[in-house]
Amino acid sequence: MGLFILRRLGVMLVTALCLTFIVFWLTNLYPNLEKLAKTQGNFRMSDEAVSSYLGNRGYLEPLPVKFGQWLGVVPGWVTELENGTVMGRCFPENASVEERRSFCGVLQGDWGYSTVFREDVGKIVTTRLALTGKLMLWVLVLMVPMALIIGVLAGMREGSKLDRSLSTVSIMSTATPEYVSGVIFIAVFASSAFGLKWFKGSATSAMENATFENFFLPVLTISLYGMGYIARMTRASMTEVMTAQYIRTARLKGVSFGNIVIKHALRNALIAPFTVIMLQIPWLLNGVVIVETLFNYKGFGWVLVQAASNNDIELLLAVSVVSVFVVLLTQLISDIGYVFLNPRIRIS
């Protein structure tokens, strides 16, 4: 078991390194850098001005060197301008010689500086992640019980009317992407056109003070799309358990149907959905980006959009590291949890 986790962690690190390198390469392509220089400097820069701007800031060094600097295994760039000022990756412009560090990268805990927000990347990511964590928490609180209830009820009698109607509900929910359900919810429940102003169409105020009125619609929008898939998996697992021998034995013993479902079937039927729920979390990230943009909730997804559309390299790298780790961690947890939940499986 220990070896298994270690090997998985190793694969995780390699994957994260590969992915960050791909992001690094794509964001450091010359047209992207040119756009960055023009948005940071001014839009009418000549080509020479762009290349001297980029050269002075270490953007034109070879890609592996730049990546090493970002990681913190290669000393950061230092440029001495013609007028004598010294600029460097690891120190502010007017730092004295003793204050100049040579290494600053992820390994030193330094995530860099965001060119859009003009703030430390580490700080932005932690504050925004906290906001998104709040959103995700409520999404899970709403989505998981609803999905499990629908799945179990649909799966306990396969082919019944109840199964048919609940399965239709879950198919409908998987067919409604967030930007469709969000638009419909806002139009129906928050617009003046329908006159039902039950909720707020924007969740900006929910960042400080989340209330049912301003937070329910975004949470519902994300949960709805993920719910259908989990419910269908729960249903499949439940129908399989309900045909098992021990359920038939219990019925023949004369145990009531309710007791069979709750005491005998439920525990075994919930093993598969656990994996599905864990693997669904990275997919929720997509929903988070869409919903945060739609409802103007300035969390992690919103930062992703801002960083990506402005080619904010270091912020984008931090965002991708975080999201890649979320994906890989949930995969690891789902594998380990599966072993603990299902005593028949042993990893050797």
């Binding site: 992915l19 992001v23 990506a308 984008l316």
Partner: peptide
């Protein structure tokens, strides 16, 4: 698959 789809779209 480990890439968030939206990030990939924004990069590509």
């Amino acid at each position: 698959l480990a890439f968030p789809v939206i990030l990939l779209f924004y990069l590509l």
